[in-house]
Amino acid sequence: MSHTVDSLKTYYLIFLALMVLTAVTVGAAFIDFGPLNISIAMAIAILKGCLVLWFFMHVRHGNPLLKIFAVAGFLWLVILVAFTLQDYVTRPWQDFEANQRWIKHQATHFEARAALPGNASHGSAH
């Protein structure tokens, strides 16, 4: 049976592109782009992933059904993430870390009080 045989040059060029993009993503991480840092990192990762899919995994030589398969997998991943986040993102998580610290502070305070002499036999576990 016949395969579309790529030239070796294609593979070496894609390898080079992936290495350069790795260097770029490391470099970009050390520069403060504010909220854009994560977007840049993910954009580079998606580009690298697409290069691997398209050239190394030969999706470009695949029949239409294979291309649908390849897209479908990532489409379902997007559904998984998007539907989960539509719940979490619409809650006030911004204050979550601060709230956690407040709860911990209250708990310590309570334990300290419970440990005081004459202050009940229950409570202080530690």
């Binding site: 294979l66 997998g73 998984l80 993430v81 979490y88 979550f96």
Partner: peptide, 27 residues
């Protein structure tokens, strides 16, 4: 490819958990 799609979702669950907890504890 059908197997790899199940693998995408297998790892995808961990990536989703990562995203949720990173939103909750960014610092």
């Amino acid at each position: 490819w059908a197997f790899l799609i199940t693998e995408i979702l297998f790892f995808g669950a961990l990536f989703t958990a990562y995203i949720v907890y990173r939103l909750m504890y960014p610092a």
